[in-house]
Deep mutational scan, measured.
Amino acid sequence: RNRTTFNSSQLQALERVFERTHYPDAFVREDLARRVNLTEARVQVWFQNRRAKFRR
C-alpha cells in the first residue's frame, strides 16, 4: 500500500476533530471519513499517529 497524502482540507477537518477529542469513537471516525473522502481505517491510523506526535 502506498503512503496516503492528505490535502489541506482533509488535514483541517482531522485536526478540528482532534482538538475536540484525541479518541474519536467509531461513529465519529466513520462520519469524518465520509466527509473527507477517506476510509475509516486511514482516519483511525491518522489519529494513532497524531496522538503519538502529540505525546512527543
Score class of each variant (00 low, 15 high):
Q10K: 02
L11W: 05
T39K: 02
A52T: 08
E40Q: 08
T39M: 02
V43F: 01
T21V: 06
R55V: 10
F18Y: 07
Q48P: 00
D31E: 12
L32K: 00
R34H: 08
E15H: 04
A41S: 10
N7A: 09
R50L: 07
S8H: 13
F27Y: 10
A52W: 02
R56E: 15
V36Y: 15
L32W: 03
Q44N: 09
A13G: 04
N7Q: 04
W46G: 02
V17R: 00
W46A: 00
F47D: 00
R51E: 00
Q48W: 04
R16S: 14
R34D: 02
A13C: 05
V45W: 13
F47S: 02
R42H: 10
A33Y: 03
D25P: 07
N7E: 11
R50M: 14
V17I: 01
F27G: 15
W46M: 06
R42C: 15
Q10R: 04
L38I: 10
F18G: 01
N2I: 05
F47G: 03
V36G: 04
E15G: 02
S8N: 11
F18I: 02
D25L: 06
R34C: 04
F54M: 12
T4M: 07
R51C: 00
V17D: 02
A13E: 15
T21F: 07
V36W: 13
Q44K: 12
R51V: 06
E40Y: 09
Q12K: 08
K53F: 14
V36A: 11
Q44F: 06
S9F: 10
Q12M: 11
N37A: 03
V36R: 01
L11E: 12
R29P: 01
N49K: 13
T21Y: 07
R20A: 12
T5M: 08
V45E: 15
R1P: 09
T21G: 05
E30S: 11
L14E: 03
L14H: 02
V36Q: 08
D25F: 03
F18S: 05
V36H: 13
A33M: 05
L38C: 09
F54R: 03
E40G: 05
S9Y: 09
R56C: 09
R20I: 12
V28Q: 13
A33E: 03
R50E: 14
L11R: 07
V17W: 03
V28C: 13
N49H: 06
P24T: 06
T5N: 15
Q48C: 00
K53L: 11
H22S: 04
W46I: 01
F54K: 02
E30N: 13
R35M: 06
A41N: 07
K53M: 15
Y23T: 06
R42M: 15
N2R: 06
S9Q: 14
W46D: 01
V28F: 01
N49M: 11
V17G: 02
R34Y: 03
A41Y: 12
P24K: 04
S9W: 10
F27A: 15
V17M: 09
Q12H: 09
P24C: 02
N37T: 04
L11F: 07
R20T: 15
R35Y: 02
R3M: 14
E40N: 02
F54I: 15
R3S: 15
V43I: 14
T21R: 01
T39R: 03
R29V: 15
S8D: 14
Q48Y: 08
Y23D: 06
T5R: 08
A52I: 03
L38H: 06
T5L: 04
R42D: 13
Q48D: 05
P24N: 00
A26G: 07
R34P: 01
N37R: 02
F6W: 05
R34L: 07
R35S: 11
E30M: 09
Y23C: 01
Q12P: 01
S8W: 07
N2L: 05
S9C: 05
F6P: 03
S9V: 12
R16I: 08
N49Q: 09
F6V: 11
R56V: 10
Q44P: 00
N37H: 07
F54A: 11
W46F: 04
S8R: 09
F27H: 12
L11P: 00
N49G: 05
D25C: 09
L38V: 14
E40K: 13
N49P: 04
S8K: 11
E40R: 05
R51A: 04
Q44L: 13
A13H: 05
D31V: 05
L38Y: 07
A52L: 08
T4F: 08
D25K: 04
T21L: 02
F47V: 00
V36M: 09
N7K: 01
V45F: 12
R56S: 15
H22P: 15
R34N: 07
A52V: 07
N49V: 08
S8P: 13
R29A: 10
